[in-house]
Simulated assay, not measured.
Amino acid sequence: MLHIPALEKLVHELSRLPGIGPKTAQRLAYYVLKSKDSYPTQLSEALMRVQAEVHTCTDCFNYTDRTVCKYCEDSHRHSDILCLVEEPSDISRIESSGAFRGRYHVLHGVISPLEGITAKDLKVQELLNKIEEGIAGTRPTIKEVIFAFDADLEGDTTALYLTKVLQGKGVKLSRIAHGIPMGSDIDFIDDRTMGRALENRIEL
């Protein structure tokens, strides 16, 4: 790359996006430069609009441009079942399955000691407040909390911590099953996934 400070700055900022490496960031930067007649302005306007209009839902902490998101507004959803997710983007994946009709609570991360992320950095206290308010009768009672976290060390750590915190609250705790994906060949399944599949086996 030519030593052009403005271009280098753009590449640097693009490379900070999740899943974008230096080479991809460079290709994107050159695309923006090549399309400079209109695209940079449109991109800038889109970014400014998101910054101005999108915020977190006051109840579940999903992203929305209203006071509460569409899932919290939906009166047909079950208020006694709460699904915990790491990020707002996880909600769309769960919704696409069509298998869940309860409410959501976004933690905005998972516990990760290596990155210095603790429970205090997440929406854990807000979760406890919801459950306590349900017990007190000031909001619908939550009967079950589902952990929908990744099957990795951070997800396991977060699930273990929340299990301890929520014990004695009169709430059923469950976690989405992890195992062999539909249509997969057992020959290509790694040992950990196979172990999870056996642990989460179901009776026929």
Rank of each mutant, 00 (worst) to 15 (best):
K169W: 03
G179M: 08
D37K: 14
D187W: 04
E115F: 04
E132H: 12
D80N: 14
T158C: 06
N62Q: 07
S79K: 12
V124Y: 00
S184P: 00
F61W: 10
K70W: 01
A46M: 11
I142S: 03
P18V: 03
K36M: 02
S97T: 15
P88L: 03
L127G: 08
D37F: 00
S97N: 01
A6H: 13
E144N: 09
E87Y: 05
L204M: 10
D191E: 15
V171F: 08
G183A: 00
D65K: 09
P18G: 04
S38R: 15
E132V: 13
Y30P: 01
F100M: 02
I146Q: 02
V85Y: 00
S75F: 06
L153K: 08
D187S: 13
I91R: 04
M48S: 15
S184M: 05
I4N: 15
M182A: 15
E132Q: 13
C72I: 03
Y71W: 03
S184W: 05
D156V: 04
C57F: 05
L173Y: 08
S44Y: 11
S92D: 13
L2K: 14
E53T: 11
F147I: 07
T24R: 08
T56F: 08
F149R: 01
T67A: 11
I135H: 12
C72S: 07
K143V: 02
A177F: 07
D37G: 15
C57G: 07
L33T: 04
R192H: 11
Q125V: 11
G134M: 05
S38F: 10
L162N: 04
Y104C: 08
L17H: 05
L14D: 03
Q125E: 15
T41G: 12
L173D: 05
V145D: 00
E13I: 08
V165R: 15
L160W: 13
F147E: 09
Q125D: 14
S38Y: 12
Y30H: 10
M194D: 06
D191G: 00
G116V: 01
D150P: 07
P5E: 05
I111H: 06
V85H: 02
E8N: 02
A136L: 11
T193R: 07
G134S: 08
K70F: 08
I20S: 08
I81K: 10
L160Y: 12
V68F: 08
L153M: 15
H3T: 11
E8I: 04
H12T: 14
I131G: 09
S97Q: 10
L33R: 02
L2E: 14
L47N: 05
L33W: 03
L28H: 07
H108C: 10
Y104H: 08
A25H: 00
Y39W: 11
E126Y: 06
I202E: 13
T138M: 07
T157A: 15
T163G: 14
S38W: 10
C69H: 06
Y71G: 00
V32Q: 03
